[in-house]
């Protein structure tokens, strides 16, 4: 029962990721794509942790933490570049 509910949660998160990818593809401006990338980074971090639950290996939680860190730095760097003051 718990496995099914958690799999449904992960499935909905994947659906959210795909819908944000639609906005990432459609743009129309670089800023819209970066906003979509920000959302996708957060959802992907959570999904990596969910993958740790599915595989039962705690090391993937650390992978998720590092991914969140790098994704945040990437989004801020792109935003600063778009603002014109990197």
């Amino acid at each position: 029962m718990a496995e099914i509910v958690f799999a449904a949660a992960a499935g909905l998160a994947v659906l959210g990721l795909l819908l944000s990818a639609v906005r990432f593809a459609r743009g129309p401006w670089a800023i819209d794509r970066t906003v979509a990338l920000d959302v996708m980074t957060i959802i992907a971090t959570s999904l990596i942790v969910a993958f740790a639950v599915f595989s039962g290996r705690r090391i993937y939680v650390d992978v998720g933490m590092v991914y969140g860190l790098v994704g945040f730095a990437g989004v801020v760097a792109i935003a600063r570049y778009l603002e014109g003051g990197l």
Binding site: V5, F6, G11, L12, G16, S46
Partner: peptide, 15 residues
């Protein structure tokens, strides 16, 4: 699992 399901609904909402 149900708390996670509530969270994923908010992910869907943001998308």
């Amino acid at each position: 699992a149900f708390v996670s399901l509530a969270g994923s609904l908010f992910f869907l909402l943001s998308a």
